[in-house]
Design a binder for these strands. Structure first.
Length: 188
DNA sequence: TTATCGATGGTA
DNA sequence: ACCATCGATAAA
């Protein structure tokens, strides 16, 4: 059994957390079933000033968790049907999070289940807003430590689907493991 | 293969 | 009215 990431891991800038989450293992234990996948793609939403970050519109019931302590889940519904999972980062008062966009399946997934894409991975895990605000240092939903992905295997580029965010949309806040076959967008 | 489009509901 | 998406369908 590998070590669960401690709260300190999340208590850093979202960009650092995003980069370091590559290679780590996202685990959901539910009804005695354990599902786990290796994070191969994620995006940082860095602060309230980040126009692509949901918290940029201020503190609301939905975004409240991002303003709270690090190491909690922010799970929301997009387009009326897809859930997206984020890990809240940084100290209380700084609203930031990392969106997990793709997993390499490791354990417990139905055969043929797809984990490439933020909506698909949540569906494959059975992860919904029931776990919004869950403590990632708890025993249901957490991220386990795993070997660091070497610098040469990490790529970064603009985030997906945030063209409305002006200059923020162009910033290279998306990180992925080069040559993974499980990316939400094929590489090259 | 790429391109386009509709589903669907919480949020503001 | 707007989406941090996805799957189906059409075109080529």
């Amino acid at each position: 059994m590998v070590r669960k990431l401690p709260r300190d891991f999340y208590d850093r800038p979202a960009l650092a957390v995003a980069r370091d989450l590559l290679g780590k293992t996202l685990v959901l234990e539910k009804d005695g079933a354990r599902r786990a996948g290796r994070i191969v793609e994620c995006e940082a939403y860095v602060s309230q000033k980040d126009l692509a970050c949901h918290a940029s519109k201020g503190r609301t019931p939905r975004t409240e968790v991002m303003f709270g302590p690090p190491g909690h889940a922010y799970v929301y519904l997009v387009y009326g049907m897809h859930h997206c999972f984020n890990a809240v980062t940084g100290p209380p008062g700084l609203a930031a999070a990392v969106l997990v966009r793709a997993l390499e399946p490791l354990e417990g997934f139905a055969s043929g289940a797809r984990t490439d894409g933020p909506g698909r991975l949540c569906r494959a895990l059975g992860l919904t807003r029931a776990l919004d605000r869950a403590d990632l240092c708890g025993n249901t939903l957490f991220i386990a430590d795993a070997p660091r992905v070497p610098r040469g295997a990490v790529r970064r580029g603009p985030r997906i689907g945030v063209d409305y965010a002006g200059a923020w949309a162009a910033r290279p806040y998306r990180f992925w493991v080069s040559e993974s076959r499980y990316l939400s967008r094929p590489e090259r």
